[in-house]
Amino acid sequence: MDTLEIIHPGSLTTVQDLGRNGYQQYGVPVSGAIDSYALRLGNLLVGNSEGLPSLEVTLFGCRLRFLADATIAITGADLSPTLDGKPVDMWNCTTVKRGGILAFSRLKSGCRAYLAVGGGISVPVVMGSAATYVRGHIGGFQGRALRAGDVIRTIRFEGSIPVARIPSGYIPNYASNKIELRVTLGPQDDYFTDNGIRTFLNSAYTVSTQADRMGYRLNGPRIQHRAGADIITDGIPLGAVQVPGDGLPIILLADRQTTGGYTKIATVISPDIPLLAQAKPGDEVAFRKVTQDEAFLALQAYEQRIQQLAKLLGPDTVRFDNV
């Protein structure tokens, strides 16, 4: 079913899901929504299973027209979404009539919004995923970012729309210009001096202008290595904090290369990745060390909360698991 027509893609609009697993062994990045929390909640709000493909809308300028009636939810950054000129209630389910025009005109907080559509967006599955890896021309809509004139299909929506509203505690506050990211040290924390580790954990860093889906390069105090920043190339987990020879940290995200040859001082824990995904150049980032056990408990609590919400929003969500 043709559902959406891109009038203007804005800064960057791509189709994303929860990423492409199993192909990093061939050098293919995971990709997927960099704020996976917002993507998952958006899907739950429209009655989809949580990982269905949605649009990731970056910064501002995206405008699209509905070619069919649809149920949508907008989550993530507040990019001042309007439907036919009227503000749309975010983190909520909205029905749109054929011909409706949705626009993201102005950035208020965060930097990436997610548009979930009841039934889910339909693009060819490449290596098990709908996620777009723009650099490698892989997946999504013809392997690329969306352009004016593109028509996006969706799967026919046959479920019922959840009636419950999302409790306000589930809506993140992206308005702060300061975030704290919890990290576990390693895998190569032993390549840094004690002083270097202290610098990393006790300093305020700022997001540089080199911040995209691949990674966020930070500015701030330089982190001291014991003897050089090079390692024998190995894999790069999501959230790895890589410190090359210049001593400045780079946090690696969804589109990160699968392997790399620089030291990784720490790894941002999974529940905190979405916070970083909404940070903008100039925002302040601080790191707080947690133990492996604390990281495990934090992830467990985070996932439980999402599952509770899935239950609250209705049993119908289960029906779409195999779509």
């Binding site: 576990t184 040290l185 390693g186 895998p187 190569q188 024998i232 190995d234 894999g235 987990p237 999501l238 959230g239 790895a240 990784k264 790894t267 941002v268 824990i269 999974s270 492996q292 990281a295 495990f296 934090a298 992830l299």
Partner: peptide, 18 residues
């Protein structure tokens, strides 16, 4: 075993290319 956050772990057999 080297930690790679909460959802990844490195199994490192040595530190040379062989």
């Amino acid at each position: 075993f080297l930690a790679g956050g909460d959802s990844a772990i490195f199994v490192e057999f040595g530190n040379t290319v062989s």
